[in-house]
Amino acid sequence: MTLITISGYPTSGKTRRANQIKDYLEQRLQDASYEGPRLKVRILSDDILNVDRAAYDDSRSEKAARGTLFTAMQREMAKDTILIVDAMNYIKGFRYQMYCAARELKLRVCTVYVVATPELCKKWETERKDGKSYAPETLDNLIMRYEEPSSMVRWDSPLITIPWIDEDVPKDDIWKAVMEGNVKPPNSGTQAIQKAPSDALHTLEHTANSLVSAIMAEQSASGGLGGSVLLSMSGSLKPRIQLPARNITLSELQRLKRQFVTVHKKAITLGTVEKGGVDWSEESVAQKFVSYLEENLKP
Rank of each mutant, 00 (worst) to 15 (best):
T249E: 08
P149H: 02
R42I: 14
K132L: 14
I48N: 04
V41Y: 02
V273G: 02
P37D: 14
N50Y: 09
A55N: 10
P118K: 14
G181H: 09
H202Y: 13
N19V: 13
A217F: 08
L230Y: 02
T81D: 02
L293Q: 10
M73P: 01
K275A: 08
Q242V: 12
V261C: 02
P158G: 06
E252A: 10
Y113M: 04
T249M: 00
L201P: 00
L139Y: 10
M73R: 05
L211T: 09
S291D: 04
K195M: 07
L225A: 08
G181C: 11
I143K: 00
S59Q: 15
Y24A: 13
K184I: 01
K79P: 01
A116T: 05
S291A: 07
F94M: 13
K123H: 13
E35I: 03
I6Q: 06
A101H: 06
K257N: 11
G36S: 10
Q20S: 01
S236F: 07
D166S: 05
S228Q: 07
I4Y: 09
I248M: 05
K123G: 02
N247Q: 13
D130F: 06
G277C: 01
S291W: 06
A32L: 02
W280V: 02
G227I: 06
A101D: 08
V273D: 14
E205F: 12
A214H: 07
I82R: 11
C100A: 14
E62G: 11
V115S: 07
K92L: 06
K132D: 01
V183A: 09
P239I: 14
T249W: 06
G181F: 06
L69H: 07
S236H: 12
Q27G: 09
L159R: 13
D279Y: 09
T15Y: 08
T81E: 06
Y96R: 10
M77D: 03
I143V: 08
S59F: 11
S188P: 01
A214R: 08
S284D: 05
R38M: 08
P118N: 12
I160L: 05
Q27W: 12
T68R: 14
I160A: 00
R95S: 12
P136S: 09
Y99R: 02
R42A: 13
D31M: 09
V109S: 13
E282G: 00
N209Y: 03
G271L: 09
D279G: 03
G36E: 12
L201H: 02
D140Y: 07
E294Q: 15
T117C: 00
N247K: 15
E148Y: 12
E26T: 11
A32C: 00
S236P: 01
L25I: 06
T269N: 04
M179A: 14
Q259A: 15
S188Q: 12
L25A: 09
V115I: 15
K176I: 10
H202N: 05
E147S: 04
Q259K: 15
K14E: 06
P10S: 10
L230T: 15
M73E: 04
N296A: 01
